[in-house]
């Protein structure tokens, strides 16, 4: 656990850098988190993914699998990997302010 002050707000993170309280999240904070994770700009397509991840997390307590994410958010697998290069589910979860995704798919 650690805290960081971002945009004049005390934000708490777990050891892997995921926010521990998703209610502290805002789109402005997402932009800052994105920069910290190597993404210069967040587009509408990024936010489509982020919003879907947050919605699923709030409803179920866990982020969606990549399969569900691509099927239900309308962002195909290829685009998802392009939007969040490297590890898409993890990176999107970091920026969406939710916990690290659990599950193998």
């Amino acid at each position: 656990m650690s805290t960081q002050t971002i945009l004049d707000q005390e934000i708490s993170f777990d050891d892997e850098g995921f926010m521990t309280d998703h209610t502290q999240w805002s789109p402005e904070l997402a932009a800052e988190l994105a920069k910290a994770n190597g993404l210069e700009e967040l587009t509408d397509r990024h936010f489509l993914v982020i919003d879907f991840m947050r919605k699923t997390f709030i409803e179920t307590g866990s982020g969606p699998t990549i399969r569900r994410l691509t099927k239900q958010s309308g962002v195909p697998t290829k685009e998802l990997y392009a939007l969040f290069p490297g590890a898409p589910a993890k990176k999107a979860a970091l920026i969406a302010g939710i916990k690290k995704p659990v599950g193998c798919i």
Partner: peptide, 17 residues
């Protein structure tokens, strides 16, 4: 668990690079 059928899974892996 959202584990797809083989055909869809292969497509997903290929699309993922």
């Amino acid at each position: 668990l959202d584990i797809p059928p083989v055909g869809e899974f292969i497509e997903m892996i290929s699309d993922a690079g």
